[in-house]
Amino acid sequence: MPTKEHELPLEMVRNRPQLAPTILRTIFGIDLPQEAPASLASEAAAGMNPAELRCDATVLLNGPEAPTWGIIVESQLRHDKEKSFSWPGYLALLRGRHKCPVILLVFCPDSATARACAKPIDMGHPEWVLKPLTFHPGMLPPVTDVDEARRLPELSVLSTPVHSDGPHAKAVLTSVAAAIDALNRDSGELYDDYLKGRLSEAAREILEEIVKTAGYEWQSDFAKSHIARGRAEGRAEGRAEGEAEMLLRVLAGRGIAVSDEIRERIVGCTDIEQLLHWGERAGVIDSAEELFD
């Protein structure tokens, strides 16, 4: 049964077919027409044994009636030597059906898998060698422009984990937050679930703050829970500041001197129960140092 990790890149291509030609232009320098509309076609390849020839996804440029390019998209979590027999069949049948040039694009989770899947396939006929174009997220540049991220959210989502702890982290996370905010609920849930499992704790905290500050209303339960947690933490932080201020006022009202070190300890405390305990002691102690006994 296909896993979520296998299906994610395919779902991205199905949601936005333009992702496939964009990767081919950006990463591999393939001269595909910039303005050509991209559409999905049937994954089934009619041949002598169609049950064995069903690719993961097919994209056609310039429409299904007279396409100018065909793209076979495959998702591989590991190298499978059997693909060296099926991949050429996919390309040959799509080329024969639509009478146009075709390309094989293979999504991989990492560089090791991409290298293994990129091994040339010698067809036996002289000079007929298929060289799969394999891709992994580490090959993508950072997406730091909000408008670009909104135009092609899938590219932003794929590249974000690679660059979320680097020098462009804030711009990358700001862009992906805006991109996900513009998506529908189903896609938003899928993409931020992908991010949740791949971002560092520091990057997740920055992303949560960006979502909260910008006022985005992400539709997924994951995002809502994070936003709710951020708001709860904000309320708790505000209450802690209030309790610390009250404690300092009580000490000042009783004429108890408070050193800079003790003041910093009180103001820096975020444990409300601890602050309440100190507040109770503030009414009976004779020096600020006794607060911590």
Rank of each mutant, 00 (worst) to 15 (best):
A51V: 13
C117P: 13
A51R: 14
N49G: 12
E43V: 05
F28G: 02
R115S: 13
W87Q: 12
T26F: 10
P109I: 00
A112K: 14
M12N: 00
G70W: 00
S111K: 15
D110I: 06
H98N: 01
I30A: 13
V59P: 01
K81L: 12
T58Y: 02
S39V: 15
M12T: 02
Y90I: 04
I23M: 10
E11D: 15
A38N: 00
E82N: 14
E5C: 02
I72A: 13
D56F: 08
K119S: 12
P50E: 07
E82T: 14
C55W: 03
A66V: 13
A36S: 15
D80K: 14
P37H: 03
R115Y: 05
H6N: 01
V73K: 04
L19E: 03
Q76R: 08
P101S: 12
R14T: 05
R54S: 07
L77G: 02
F28A: 01
T22L: 14
Q34F: 12
Q34S: 10
A57K: 00
G47I: 10
K81R: 15
N62W: 13
T68V: 09
L53S: 08
C108V: 06
T26L: 12
H6G: 05
Q76H: 06
A57T: 05
K81W: 14
A41H: 06
G70K: 00
I71A: 11
M12P: 00
A44R: 08
I72G: 02
I103G: 15
V59D: 05
C108T: 07
Q34N: 12
L53E: 11
F107N: 03
L8H: 08
E11F: 07
K119Y: 11
S39Y: 08
D110K: 05
V13I: 12
L10Q: 03
A116Y: 01
A66Y: 11
E43L: 07
I71N: 01
Q18R: 12
V106R: 04
C117W: 11
I72D: 10
A41W: 00
I27W: 06
H79W: 15
E43A: 08
L93A: 09
A45W: 09
Y90T: 00
V73L: 08
H6A: 03
E35L: 15
R16N: 10
A41S: 12
G70Q: 02
D80V: 07
T68A: 06
A92Q: 08
A44V: 09
E7V: 09
P50M: 01
L19I: 03
G29F: 04
I30C: 13
D31K: 07
S84R: 12
Y90M: 01
L77V: 09
A118E: 07
Q76I: 09
Q18P: 07
P109K: 01
P50N: 07
V102P: 03
P109G: 00
